[in-house]
């Protein structure tokens, strides 16, 4: 009897080990496939570097972002200030590092809220259809009729500058795309036989939406989410550039470009460096997104 149990336990252990190995192999395979995509790897490296720099900004930046040194106004890059100093004698590098925090936070938070709201509404509308679906779809069509930037400018004009106001203004329309993606995904999936099978087994609507359908539509949402993170960063920069985004005392790339814009002929470095880093981050995020799309798309996936 004891012997029998121990054999059973050992079989179980062996199975467990095997399972772990299989899991590790499949996770490893996913990473390997991502790793084969050179541009995605390059993008990931740049994103990681910028995120790290942003997180560690207070520790690694040579100055305080607000510290003015009027004697050093318009110091060119290369000297005491690696990327130069601005019209108030503040260190450009320091301000870029601190500005990265705003850009990255805006990107992450707006996309997270948009994916969640759009995803949940889209799944519900797609699964149940009917009046809810018709109403939501018309609403999104109305929202899509406005250009994004104009819409955000209007919203910011009403709400006033501020970090959270900016986030709300961007999310107000940001969810629409995810709604449509999720809804289309559900419409395609819900007629498939595995959903019928789940119904026959007696799974509830909530279980079917959450456990059966969602895992199959979540990848495109994540991929587009990554790509949109770049868009959101540009939107933040645009709004800050227009002076209606983040309050001026917080350094952001958008407001830095705006400030330097007036002196572009005499001190090119004020606008150029934040511009380059903005382009680099957005581009890298997009490269990672594209790489993810290739790896996560089940149609392209073969074993």
């Amino acid at each position: 009897m004891i012997r029998g149990e121990s054999t059973q336990a050992s079989v179980r252990r062996r199975l467990m080990r095997l399972r772990l190995r299989l899991w590790a192999e499949s996770a490893g395979a996913t990473l390997k496939r991502l790793g084969r995509n050179k541009s995605a790897v390059a993008g990931a490296v740049v994103v990681t570097a910028i995120v790290l720099a942003a997180v560690l900004a207070p520790l690694i930046s040579p100055y305080s972002p607000d510290k003015m040194n009027l004697n050093d106004r318009f110091s060119p890059p290369g000297g005491e200030y690696v990327l130069g100093a601005d019209h108030l004698g503040r260190d450009v590098l320091t301000r870029i590092l601190h500005g990265a925090r705003v850009s990255i936070l805006v990107g992450l938070i707006t996309v997270a809220i948009s994916i969640f709201t759009g995803g949940v509404l889209g799944v519900l509308a797609g699964y149940y259809g009917g009046t809810l679906d018709t109403f939501m779809s018309r609403l999104t069509e109305v929202l899509l009729a406005f250009p994004y930037l104009i819409f955000a400018i209007g919203a910011m004009a009403m709400l006033g500058p501020g970090f959270w106001n900016l986030v709300w203004a961007l999310c107000f329309k940001g969810w629409v795309e995810f709604f449509r993606l999720a809804r289309a995904g559900v419409l395609a999936e819900k007629t498939k036989e595995y959903v019928e099978a789940a119904k026959v087994l007696g799974r509830s609507d909530l279980e079917i939406m959450g456990f059966e359908i969602l895992p199959n539509i979540v990848n495109p949402l994540l991929v587009v989410g990554t790509l949109r993170m770049g868009t959101m960063m540009v939107m933040e920069a645009s709004l800050s550039f227009l002076g209606i985004g983040i309050p001026p005392r917080i350094p952001t790339w958008g407001s830095m470009i705006q400030d330097g814009y007036r002196f572009i002929l005499n001190a090119w470095w004020l606008s150029t460096f934040p511009g380059i880093i903005l382009v680099a981050l957005v581009l890298s995020v997009n490269l990672v997104g594209e790489g993810l799309r290739e790896v996560l798309d089940p149609d392209l996936q073969t074993f």
Partner: peptide, 8 residues
Amino acid sequence: YASLNPRH
């Protein structure tokens, strides 16, 4: 091909 959930 469609009757089993590809994610499970």
